[in-house]
């Protein structure tokens, strides 16, 4: 039982409903729509005077509290799984980059920039758009999710074609 909950990765039919339950509880208890990437805008709003970040959306403090919790939950999951091993290993990306730390760091840094800019441009990320937004039947969320998939499919397959793997 401990293994199934804390060690073995959950199958999709447990993972998906668990996420849906959290979305529902966030609305029913917290009164908010679950979302992650808008919190980066909230962080910018603290130091930036730019009009873009001065809207109500970015001035809600709960978003920052929420994203502070994310790595804490991840840490608990890793520790309970007996898999807490801080390091630089990054799955298939290690084979792709041929063990070059500089290449890997460059790809991750560039990827981070694209994620930050893309999420603000699209008005959300896979949590706020693909899960909560589609669950509400929002056109922008359906289109954004298709775009996430097309962009990811194109770039990842290009990456594997160029770097081999």
């Amino acid at each position: 039982m401990y293994d199934a909950i804390f060690v073995t990765p959950w199958p999709w039919w447990v993972a998906g409903p668990a996420i849906g339950l959290i979305v529902t509880l966030m609305a029913w208890i917290g009164g908010k729509a679950l979302g992650v990437s808008t919190a980066y805008g909230s962080a910018c709003a603290i130091v930036s005077k730019a009009a873009f970040f001065q809207t109500r959306e970015y001035r809600e403090p709960w978003r920052l509290a929420f994203v502070v919790g994310l790595p804490l939950g991840g840490l608990v999951a890793a520790v309970l799984a007996g898999a807490f091993a801080p390091g630089l290993a990054y799955g298939q990306l290690d084979a792709l980059t041929g063990g070059s730390l500089a290449t890997k760091a460059g790809l991750l840094f560039g990827g981070g920039l694209l994620i930050g800019a893309g999420a603000r441009w699209a008005g959300g990320c896979p949590s706020g758009h693909s899960i909560v937004g589609i669950a509400q039947g929002a056109t922008s969320s359906i289109v954004a999710t298709l775009a996430f998939m097309v962009g990811g499919f194109a770039v990842l397959n290009l990456l594997f074609a160029v770097l081999g793997g």
Binding site: L114, G118, P126
Partner: peptide, 15 residues
């Protein structure tokens, strides 16, 4: 949603 989505997807794939 279209252009930002494509950019986000590219970043998702890289990172």
């Amino acid at each position: 949603a279209i252009w930002g989505g494509l950019v986000f997807g590219a970043g998702w794939a890289l990172s």
